[in-house]
Amino acid sequence: MAVVRLSKVSKAYGTHQVLREVSFELEKGRMLALIGRSGSGKSTLLRCMNGLETIEGGEIEMAGHKITQGSVSLRALRQDVGIVFQQYNLFPHLTVERNVTLAPDVVKGMARDEARALARRVLAQVGLESKIDAYPDQLSGGQQQRVAIARSLAMAPKVMLFDEVTSALDPELTGEVLKVMEDLARGGMTMILVTHEMAFARRVADTVGFMHHGRLWEFGTPEQVMNKPATPELEGFLGAVL
């Protein structure tokens, strides 16, 4: 059953059309990697999927929550759809534990010791249980990004979005974040990521989507999309990045 369903999603900034009738479906437990040049609309598309950007046409359905042009119940949607950002965006004034437990506490009303146990569990999942009392600025970029993943996991989302989460990291720190994401994928999390990590996309993703000029230009298995590009645009892009 499709847990993510996009149908003719369109968006424009003024006269600039950033998304043109994007449609696709994603089954539960699958990982979709969105690739494409900067400005092709892939990050915007991802941000539309948790309501950080509005859409002007079409419909998005995420884990049963519908997003259309009009009003959306963003809070219900966001309890089921997590997002991890390129710049981590941890809360710098809070400890790692509080970063992770803030939303379970104030949004879901979780009890304090239950929240602490939850923090331990999700931090163990990203290999950072020992940093539970640290502040974000005491961690490396890779560790901060793993805390950001743990923070998102703590809300027990049904779908997780990853917006170029390794782009701000040194190559040696990229690996530890990708490993956490691979573990999540194996654990059955439904994931959509915008990424420049072609090798990772090819190896771990079930589906790859190539965005070009706001359109979902090609969509298929990694083998289809990355080994046998059907269009000169994708061929040109792969030639440039591989």
């Binding site: 963003l74 809070r75 966001r78 309890q79 950002f85 965006n89 803030l102 939303a103 949004v107 998102s152």
Partner: peptide
């Protein structure tokens, strides 16, 4: 981005 991150965690504006 602090607004975005906290909004994405389903916090209300007062929260």
């Amino acid at each position: 981005t602090q607004w975005e991150a906290s909004a994405s965690l389903a916090l209300t504006r007062p929260q």
